[in-house]
Write a protein that binds this DNA or RNA. Structure first.
Lengths: 118, 118
DNA sequence: TCATAATATTCCTATAACGGAATGAATCAA
DNA sequence: TTGATTCATTCCGTTATAGGAATATTATGA
């Protein structure tokens, strides 16, 4: 096999710096037309449109036609899976106490698996 | 230009499902040798080693030689940038009240920028 | 209808990077 | 030493983009 499918899930969608930039722009400015995004972004309109296409496919943004413009809006709740995933690791860096606790849990799990996996 | 450099930042590192799987394994089981990870992962040893290489480059994991084994350990605090970034969007989906507040802020920012960007 | 504006889509090129096979390197055991 | 273990690296083929240029599409206005 070769490269795994990518642009179809949220984690990959936000892996691209420009796509994060787009999200940040939408978060700060609210709804934006494509042209406004292009104006703020050093890359051409087709590139922006394609990134918006990716974000749309994973539902992080939504569009609505307004005359001949397409206004994009943030749909941030689709980022929740990312938030939830990374939150599971928060304990490892937050407070020292939690870190100790987390390590203790690790140790416990290690003991459950007597070296494991052949 | 072509595809942007990727493997050099955390967001891209965690975009790969198998790399997330590796992180999850390390989180649940604690330190693991390469062989143990391979045993839990449907892909060959070279592939696992390469993924570990990526995770190592972005410092999400660290290695220590132990005899002829290489034991990998989670260094989750490197995930903090991701956590911080996505946390900025939490307000958009958490409580309705916050959503309203967030929208109000958006509106305010929109007014600061009279259509903007040409 | 025709021209223009605003976007999306298609075509193209360069490059990134998964994964497997083969190989290299280091370490331990006998 | 020799052989086996445990990983990392290299080489290779395949696929997936990112972005630009050109083009298609849709809506507005005259």
């Amino acid at each position: 096999m070769a490269r795994a499918a990518t642009t179809s899930d949220v984690f990959n969608a936000i892996a691209e710096p420009r796509r994060r930039q787009i999200l940040d722009l939408l978060a700060r400015r609210g709804e934006q037309g494509v042209g406004e995004l292009v104006g703020a972004m050093r890359i051409g309109q087709p590139a922006v449109s394609k990134h918006l296409g990716v974000l749309r496919r994973v539902r992080i943004v939504s569009v609505s036609r307004r005359g001949r413009r397409r206004v994009y809006r943030l749909n941030a709740k689709e980022l929740k899976p990312v938030h939830d995933w990374v939150k599971g690791y928060e304990q490892f860096w937050s407070h020292q106490i939690n870190r100790i606790k987390a390590r203790a849990e690790q140790k416990a799990r290690e003991q459950d698996q007597p070296t494991s996996e052949k």
